[in-house]
Computed example of a mutant assay.
Amino acid sequence: MLVSPMLVIGLAAAADLLMPHWQFNRLLGAAPALAAAMWPVAGTLAIGLLALLTAIALSTAHHQLGHTPSVFTLLAILAITLAAAYASRVRQHRERVLAAVRTVADTAQQVLRPPIPRQLGCVDVEVLYQAAAAHARIGGDFYEARRTEYGVRMIIGDVRGNGLPAVEAASVMLTSFRVHVRNAPDLPYLAGRLETSMREYCEEVPGDDVLERFITVLLVEIPAGEPIARLVNCGHPAPLLLHEGDVREVEPSAPSPPINMAALLGDHYQVDTVPFTVGDRLLLYTDGVSESRDFTGTFYPLAQRVRRWVSAGPRQLLDHLHHDVLAYVSGSRDDDLAALVAHRVGPGDRRHRRRP
C-alpha cells in the first residue's frame, strides 16, 4: 500500500505521545525505509522529511530537543532516508531493466509461439503454455498447428535442458516444421526434415554436448475426409485420446527416435492410426504435465484426472488441467508446462457453437 509509510508515521507519533517513555519516535525511521520499496526517489525523500519533522515536533513536545537521544534519533532518520532514497533509485533502475527484458521476451514469444487459430478446418485447437522460470514467457516446450492439403498437422515437443539453448533449439524445430509441413507427403518425411534441420543446427553450433541435444516430438495428422488421426511419436509422452466418454493413452506401436538421435537409433519413424471421429479430442502435452510431483514424489495421475473432465470443452479441459497441476505440485515447478487439445467437429457443430 502506498499510504503505509504515512501510516507508520501516524501510528509512531500517536504511540509516542501516549507513551513517551517507550520512545516510539525511534520507529519513524521505518517510514522512509518502507517507502523505498514502493515510492520513487522524490517520494521517498518526502516521506523521510515528514518523518524527520515529526520527530522534531515530538522532541519539542517532550522538551527533549537538543538532548543526545533526540539528536541521535534525528540523525538516524536522516541516514535511513538517504539510504532509502538510494535503494529506491536502484529499485527503479532494476524495474526498468526487467520491463525491457519482459518486452523482449514477449516479442520472442510472438515469434516463437504465435497464436494458433482456434479453428483449423475440421479441428478446433486450444493450447496451454507456462514456462518454469519465474516471470519467464518462453522456454523449451513448443507446439504448432497448421492446415494443409493432407489435413490438420500439429507438433508438440520438448527440448532437453532449459535456458536460452533450449529456446534456440525450439525455434529451429518450429521453423523447420513451418517450412516443410505443407509439402511433406507424410509424417515420417516431416520427421526426417526435422532431424536434418536439427543436425545442421548442431553442426553450425558445435559443443561438447552435441550428442546430448535431443528433442522429443509428437507429430499428428488429422485428415479432413477420414475419421482417423495419424501419429508419429519420437520419444514423447503418449497423448490421451478422449473417445466416446473414455480416456486412453495412445502408446506407439514401435519406438521412433527423438530428434537428433537418428544417427544412434536409426531413422525409422512409425506411423500409428487411431479412430478420431466427430466429438473426439486428443490431448497432447509435455512432461512438465505428466512428470509433475506432489510432496511425496508421486507423479501426477494425468489420465485419472482427465477422466473427471471428459465432458468438458477443450478450453475448459485445459483450464481444469492447469489449475489441478498447480495445486498438485509441491513447491515450485522446475519444468515448462505445455498442452494442446485437438477437438474434431462437424460442419453443423461449428455453425451453432459460440466462442467465449
Rank of each mutant, 00 (worst) to 15 (best):
residue 5 P to C: 05
residue 10 G to S: 12
residue 18 L to Q: 07
residue 20 P to H: 04
residue 30 A to N: 09
residue 32 P to V: 01
residue 33 A to V: 12
residue 35 A to K: 07
residue 38 M to T: 11
residue 40 P to N: 13
residue 42 A to T: 09
residue 50 L to D: 03
residue 50 L to M: 12
residue 71 V to H: 05
residue 78 L to I: 07
residue 78 L to W: 03
residue 81 T to G: 08
residue 89 R to F: 14
residue 91 R to S: 05
residue 95 E to G: 00
residue 98 L to G: 12
residue 105 A to P: 00
residue 108 A to L: 14
residue 110 Q to V: 03
residue 114 P to D: 06
residue 114 P to S: 06
residue 128 L to W: 14
residue 142 F to G: 09
residue 147 R to W: 11
residue 149 E to C: 01
residue 161 G to Q: 01
residue 161 G to D: 08
residue 169 A to Y: 07
residue 172 V to L: 02
residue 178 R to V: 01
residue 188 P to W: 08
residue 191 A to N: 10
residue 193 R to V: 06
residue 196 T to I: 13
residue 205 V to E: 15
residue 207 G to P: 09
residue 217 V to I: 07
residue 221 E to R: 10
residue 228 I to G: 08
residue 231 L to Q: 05
residue 243 H to E: 13
residue 247 V to G: 07
residue 252 P to C: 09
residue 254 A to M: 08
residue 257 P to M: 07
residue 261 M to T: 13
residue 267 D to L: 02
residue 269 Y to G: 04
residue 270 Q to I: 09
residue 276 F to V: 07
residue 277 T to W: 09
residue 280 D to K: 10
residue 287 D to A: 09
residue 291 E to Q: 15
residue 293 R to V: 14
residue 293 R to Q: 14
residue 294 D to C: 06
residue 295 F to T: 15
residue 303 A to D: 09
residue 305 R to E: 15
residue 311 S to H: 12
residue 312 A to L: 11
residue 313 G to R: 04
residue 313 G to Q: 05
residue 321 L to E: 01
residue 323 H to G: 13
residue 323 H to T: 14
residue 325 V to H: 02
residue 327 A to H: 14
residue 335 D to C: 12
residue 345 V to F: 04
residue 355 R to I: 09
